[in-house]
Design a protein around this nucleic acid. Structure first.
Lengths: 240, 240
DNA sequence: TAGTGGTCTAGACCACTTT
DNA sequence: AAGTGGTCTAGACCACTAG
């Protein structure tokens, strides 16, 4: 008949006290043993609750020193970088993928550096556009290190986007993102079918496995079409 | 003599197999009992490893059906929204906070709706600028629901920024972010000391506790000054 | 309905760090 | 030296769901 797990009850209880200011920054939390007594459960159950709250950044734990309420800040935010197709269709627009170019070329010094290949070394470049009905939703300029992405040379990317293919087929462990705003120069404006000088949201994405760089992509979005949103943390204090 | 915990060893082992493509999307993972045998540890240890990998989105777990490698996507990215002072100083520039206005006023329809207050209701508005040496790093237009932020009326925000004060003193559970790019209109360009039409990175931030809206802030940054970066997941496969 | 994950306990030992 | 968190075990029971 109990639906919510015990450790969750402990978590919710402490989180509520922190959120409401009942427990302020720096306040000491009872030791695991004391809390286990108070909640009438085992120490491991309390431990899990405290550990997960600490993982979320709400608590700071130290041996011997005990557990304290962490300093609150906006330090990290989980942003959803949506899948293009889904985002476009969520807007009620028709999604279309368009391959603009697929060629072997030598990337710029900057890109060569990011992908850790020698300057002048030729790589696979895939340029494409993602449409939302009559607007360009994203322009993508991607460089692929074929040494690290087996089979990429055999794909023509006319139907499946490079992003989708790589996610499924390449080995990688980590994707670094950088997000910034800039104005469209003449060429980019033409690519995106927007006015020169229009605001763009640019996402740069570097995919790698340990020290092996797999691919680097520069994604351009018209500023009026894409808004990134943080995941709203599900919060179940009062389900009113 | 063992330094890395057992559950971490299990995690690393599975993560490596997923990253390298050894275990592809959809592949079945052995049951907890089998893995516990294989690693020579208890089921709980394996359970913790699998649970944490599932929390990270690498695995999908189902009762009876077992555990599978999740479909990989770029669905969520943890973006660091840096503390202004630290970000500015990290750039080697001098940080300065400037209060531009602090007044009681009725917010726009849009803001009133976001803060769930009646149109025409007066709220506390705090407008400020954050400088990085001779450049404006951020322009901040903030509305505070004084009903939900005890003591805000007694603070003049000339020395301490509204953000810092609220983080320390207000009760809240959740901060929603929206990020977009836009071009500076005449007024904003003047506020930010940039050319009209310059690209801006805008962060909108709504802070609330359950259904109580505490504060809403619109933060504008010159596009050339701020780049948001994802947290690089610490990855310790080969420390070469 | 059988197999899988989800939770929980009681007890243990270890590692770290403040006192 | 002592108190705290970190990890681990063996065993148990429950909850869900695919077959």
């Amino acid at each position: 008949m109990r639906k919510t797990p015990l450790y969750q009850i402990v978590k919710d209880s402490l989180r509520a006290q922190i959120d409401t200011g009942e427990l302020m920054t720096g306040a000491r939390i009872d030791s695991e043993e004391v809390l286990a007594d108070a909640f009438g459960c085992s120490r491991l159950t309390v431990h899990r609750a405290l550990r997960e709250l600490a993982d979320e950044g709400l608590l700071v734990r130290n041996r011997r020193a005990g557990t304290q309420v962490a300093e609150r800040d906006t330090g990290g935010v989980l942003i959803r970088v949506p899948r293009i197709r889904e985002e476009v269709e969520a807007l009620g627009l028709a999604y279309r993928y368009e391959l603009l170019a697929r060629r072997h070329a030598a990337p710029s010094r900057l890109v060569a550096g990011l992908l850790r290949v020698g300057v002048g070394r030729r790589m696979l470049q895939v340029v494409s556009r993602h449409w939302a009905s009559e607007r360009v939703f994203q322009h993508e300029n991607r460089w692929i290190n074929v040494d690290e992405a087996d089979g990429a040379l055999d794909v023509d990317f006319s139907e499946v986007s490079a992003n989708d293919w790589l996610l499924k087929n390449a080995a990688y462990s980590c994707i670094d993102h950088e997000i910034s705003a800039l104005c469209a120069d003449a060429e980019t404006a033409d690519d995106l079918r927007v006015a020169e000088g229009a605001a763009l949201l640019q996402v740069r994405r570097l995919t790698h496995l340990a020290k092996k760089r797999v691919t680097y992509a520069v994604l351009m979005h018209p500023g009026d079409l894409l808004t990134l949103r943080s995941e709203t943390r599900a919060y179940s204090l009062n389900a009113s």
